[in-house]
Structure formats: structure tokens, C-alpha cells
Write a protein that binds this DNA or RNA. Structure first.
Lengths: 196, 196, 196, 196
DNA sequence: AATGAATGAGGGTTCATTCAT
DNA sequence: TATGAATGAACCCTCATTCAT
């Protein structure tokens, strides 16, 4: 019984490592099996194919990710602090599933998840747009796009940094200060232009 | 003679497009040759192999990049404005070689240039560290790392955005405002913490 | 005990369907087991392998077939009507074991039964040759071969037609009229040539 | 130059033999290449894949076959003799491309030609139906179907018999006598039934 | 300067079969 | 009785690369 689970588990771990290192397209099932200590046929007992084992690797974090996704869309952020709370929760989640998140976002080319990163960025951008519009009548969409991306990649950098959970959350909060101040600076510069 | 150049040029352009679309590993020499209208043999007359044509595609912009690189390292930025000038120059360069820059930074996995992005980020980080140290006695290296990355990915996002040159420069400047204000906010929060 | 029989029976039925649809070589034991609701191990408990379950599927009808076979060889047909009686009996048997007969005749490539159809045709040909020789001193063997095949494939077409038993027998009798008249026409043409 | 053609030709011949022996699905590209004395990659220089080399094997005869096909549909056969002429032409064609015809009719499962035999039989059946209707007000479609199949398989048997061309044509003509007499016998029996 | 033929390794996948339990 | 895990060979196909011409 232990052995059964072990093989599947070994395959999943070997696959996770291979997807993370090479990406979906360049991952090799032969290599995955070899590192798991089994033959190719064994993989096909547990999984339907390459895409199936990929999904098995990311399915659990993905489901949670999508739940967070939805909440992000449906929440009305009244101020920066309301956002910060959601942010912390998200950060903690991302850290717990670091590898899988990296795979979904950066190593999923060739799967149906390859558009996930862009979709998430777009969602974040919509949130930021709603927020910007509270302070500016007609904010530049391109600017919002870039600022959103910066914040997103800030998270990602923290994620990739190999920090402990609390450390990472702290870092994210400091980044929040940076971003909020940056945002305020933008408002000031722009309304200043309009006013003066 | 014209034909010679044409063939080589066609191959380089076809290769550039293929590397950009698929990345080094998943680029196909067959496809490159087909789109260039020649056979594989022709490619091997001009180039030693896949890595060689890759280098040929990026060599010229790469050399310029590295020159800028070096200057960035050796320049002492006295204030934010001094940096902004270099920034504009850089932005214009990046835009002129958009495709090649994208290839070097994001599509070079499997070549010896796959570490280039990280190296450049590190250099930028050193610059920022020197700058930070003028205002803070012991800035958090992790924080600098993240903030550097954010700014870098901000540039990249502008680059990927398909803007015209002036538009992009303008956008970069606005991002500069955001970043400077963010930086100032950080200083304030940190020295404030120390003081209070 | 009931369950034992059920499993074996289910496997045999699933196998029959798969052999009929895909032929021996392209039948899949995996698929057979899946459709029977059991695992591969179960199949290997009851049968030695692919060829063995194939034989199990066809063994019973095959034995009866061979009995009829033998009788056909040893019967002296004095006239066409004597043959017709045997024919009806045969037709009813073939219809009762339609699937298995189809499998033996047309879906057995790769097994030791792949020559069965030819052997049966040869036997039928011998019967027809004996019959022809009553009316012609030296009938053309090639012609007999073809005429035999035609009649045989006539039966097969009826078999594959999905008719009810009585309907099929009636059709076979009409085909008998066609064949007998055709035979008579041949005799006439040939002896006419000889005589005139 | 000779060698180039030789390899492609060898591959086509090796493929023809393999398709004929094992059918499309069970043919092996590895085996085809091995028998042609080249490696698998060589095949893919000349052909796009398994289906492509299959089409290359049968394309020429297939085009002619389809032309004959069409003519068969559009010709109005006034009597049995008018049909016999077409028949001879067809027989000569089929003999010239014996292997390919066998492959198209009996070894094409898994390709887009797998329905060709049934389609051809249907066409032949339509021709026969038109002919029957000249002599019978309401001929039994099932009977026509069987009689058509018999004649068709008669041709096939001649084809598979390995006869020389003239011999085969002669045989086909004799089969024609058999079939015509059989047909006449049917008419007589049926109208007799009605009358008496 | 360039063609076109050919190699051989590796890609994902399916298969009949085995065996400990 | 039957399960479910695992094997290893074969499947079609794509690839970067080589080389005679």
C-alpha cells in the first residue's frame, strides 16, 4: 500500500521538478520516469499522458488560485489598506505552493494554462483601474497596465526569492508602501498638471 | 554577391522570428530554413549550428547592450535625475532592438545567454544599492532586489507593449515618477520608524 | 460461483465485440477488460493470453462448423436439390452464430485461424468440382474456383445483411435459383461449343 | 540521381508490400524502412507520414479507378453485352494494378479510403438496379444487393487468382455468362410465380 | 554557395503480459 | 478470484546535424 502511493507520489514529484526546470514542452516523460525509478509504462498507469500528469501536478493549487482570483474580481477595494489584507492572504498562499505557482505562471506553455498569467494580470489590472478611477477622472490605461505589471512582478520576485513565509509577507508589505507612495506621487503629478 | 547576403540575411530574419516565437529550444531549424526559402544545408554553410545562428541573431545588439551595461556600472548617479537621462537612452536602444532584446532576455533558455537577464538585474541592483545607501545607512538588500526587479519589469512591459518610441519614453518617465515617489515613501517610512 | 461465471462470460462477450469490431490484431485487451468491468489480471486468470481468449470466443461455433464441414466433404450430392437442403441447414447455423462466424472468417488475421476461410472455400470448391464433373468431362478448375467463391460470398453477404432467419433462408434459396440457372447456362454454353 | 530515385522507389515498394501484407494499421514504418535499407528519418524526407506514403502508393491507380467509377455511374447499359464491354476494360485495369487495388479495397482500414469498397459496391448496385428494373417491376433490393456482391467478389477472386491478363478477361467473360443465365433464371422464376 | 538525401537519437504513447497480494 | 502496479518493446514522428555533390 505504501509502495503504490510512493510510485505515484514519486512520479508527481519528479514531474514537478522536470516541469519546473524545463517547462511543459521540454519536459521529458522518459526523464521523469527515470528519476522516479520506474519505466514509462508505469506513468501511463496513473496518468493519461503528459498533459494529464501536468494537471495532476498543479490541480490543487490551481483550484485555490482560481478561488482567490474570483474573490479578487468581486471585491470592492475602498482604499489601499483593504487591498493589503487580501494581498497578505494571497502571498501566504503563493508561498505554500511556490513550485506549482511558478509552473502555472511561467512553465505552462503548450498547455491550456499558458494564458493563465495574462488572464491574472488582466484581472489585477481591472482591480487597479477601478481603484485609480477614484482619484483620477481618466487615468492612462497604458500606465495602469505597466504599474500593475510592476506590482505583479514584485510579488513574483518575492516568491522566487526563497524567503520564509513571514519574511515574504513583510517584504510584500514594504513593497505595498513603495507602491502606495508611488501611486500618490503619480496622482499629485497629474492633478498638479491639470490644476496648474 | 547580392544573393549571398540575401540568403544569409533571410536566414537571420527567419531565425529571429522563430526564436522570438518559440524560444531557442523549441525553435526549429527546418522551419527557419523553410521560411527563408532555403534548405538546411544552406544554414550550415553560413552557421555552425543552432547556437551559432542564435548568436548571430543577437550579437550586434548584445555588444551594444554590454557597452551600456558597463557604462551603467561605472557611472556614479548623484541623484534620480542623473539616472533618468541614462534611462531614456537605454529605452531608445531597447526599442530599436526590441526583438533581439526580447530574445536575449526571455527566449534564450538552453543557450549560454540564459543567465543574461539575471546578470543584468544584478547590475541594476548594484546601481540601486549605491543609490539607496546615500539615504539609508543599511538598506534591506532583499527590498532593493525586489524594487529593482519591479522597475526592470516595468521597462520590459513598456517594451512588450508595442508603443512608438516617444510614447514609450514618455511612459518610462512617468514610471520614473512612480518609482521615485515610491522610493521617497520608503525612505520616509524607514527613517520615520527609526526616528519615532 | 455465479459471479465467477459472470466475469468470464462478461469477458467473453466484451472480447467478442472487440474482435468483431477491430479484428484480432487491433483488438485491445485493455479495452476488453474495461468494457467487461474488470482488470487485466482477471482476464489472465481465465485465459492464457490474447490468442487464448480468441479461441474461447470462437471454439464452440468452430467445433460445430467443422462438423458441418466434414459432412459437406463426405456427402455425395446427386443433384442441386440435395445441396439446397444442406444449404438451408448451414445458413441457419451461420445465422445463429453470426458474430463468431464473422470473426472466424474475416477477423482472425494474426491467429492460427486466419487460413480458415480459404480452407472452407477449398472444401466447398471440391464439392462443386464433384458436382460439375457429372455434367462436364473436364471443367475448368479456375472457373469452378470463381463460381464457388461467388456463391460463398453470396452467403456471407446475406449473413452480414442483418436479416431475420427465415428471411435469410428465403434469400439464400433465391440465390440458389440464380446459381443453379447460372450453372445450367454454363453447361449449355460449354457443351454447345463442344457439340457444335 | 539514380540513387535518389532508388531510395524513394524502394520505400514505395517496401511500403506497398507491407500494406498489402499487414494492412494500413498494422503496417510498420520501421519495418518498411528496414526492408528498404534506410532509417526512419529517410522516409520522412520523402513523405509526410504513414498516411502520406499510403496515398503515394495508391494515388495513381486510385485516380484511374475513380475515373472508371464515374463512367460506370453515368453510362446507361441497354443490355448485358453493353455491360460486358465496360467489364473487360475494368478487368484489364484492375489486373495492371493488382496490388494497389487489393490495398485500396481490403487493406485500407484506418485511412480515409476505408469506405471505398462499400462505395464502389453501392455504385455497382445502383447500376444493377437500373438494369433489373427493365425486366421486373419491383425487384427485391436485398436480392439485388446480394447478386451485385456476388459478381463483385467474382471479379475480386479472379484478380486475386494470379492469372495472366487475357486469361483473366476470358474468365470474367465466362462469369458473365454464368451471371446472365442466373439473372434470366431469376426473371423466369419470378414472373412465373406471378403468372401462375 | 547551396542542394537534397540520410542518419540516429529522442519525443509521447499503446500494448500484451507478468506478478505480488 | 481478481486487483492493480509495473515492465519493456514497439508504435509514429521530429529533430539537429552531416555530407557527397
Amino acid at each position: 500500500m505504501n509502495e503504490e502511493l510512493q510510485t505515484k507520489q514519486k512520479l508527481l514529484e519528479s514531474a514537478k521538478a522536470d516541469f519546473l526546470e524545463h517547462g511543459f514542452k521540454n519536459a521529458s516523460l522518459r526523464r521523469i520516469c527515470k528519476n522516479a525509478g520506474v519505466t514509462t509504462g508505469a506513468l501511463y498507469f496513473f496518468f493519461k499522458g503528459k498533459e494529464d500528469i501536468f494537471e495532476a501536478v498543479i490541480s490543487e493549487p490551481l483550484a485555490m488560485f482560481e478561488k482567490m482570483f474570483e474573490r479578487l474580481v468581486n471585491t470592492e477595494f475602498t482604499d489601499a489598506k483593504a487591498f493589503d489584507k487580501t494581498e497578505e492572504e494571497m502571498m501566504r498562499f503563493l508561498l505554500r505552493y511556490r513550485s506549482e505557482v511558478m509552473i502555472i505562471l511561467d512553465k505552462s506553455e503548450g498547455t491550456k494554462y499558458e494564458g493563465f498569467k495574462a488572464a491574472y494580470l488582466q484581472t489585477l489590472e481591472n482591480v487597479f483601474t477601478r481603484f485609480f478611477k477614484k482619484y483620477l477622472p481618466a487615468p492612462d490605461p497604458q500606465l495602469i497596465h505597466v504599474v500593475t505589471a510592476m506590482r505583479f512582478y514584485g510579488y513574483l520576485e518575492i516568491l522566487y526569492g526563497g524567503h520564509g513565509e513571514d519574511e515574504a509577507v513583510e517584504l510584500a508589505k514594504t513593497v505595498g508602501i513603495y507602491a502606495d507612495a508611488g501611486f500618490a506621487g503619480l496622482i499629485k503629478a497629474m492633478t498638479g498638471v491639470h490644476n496648474g
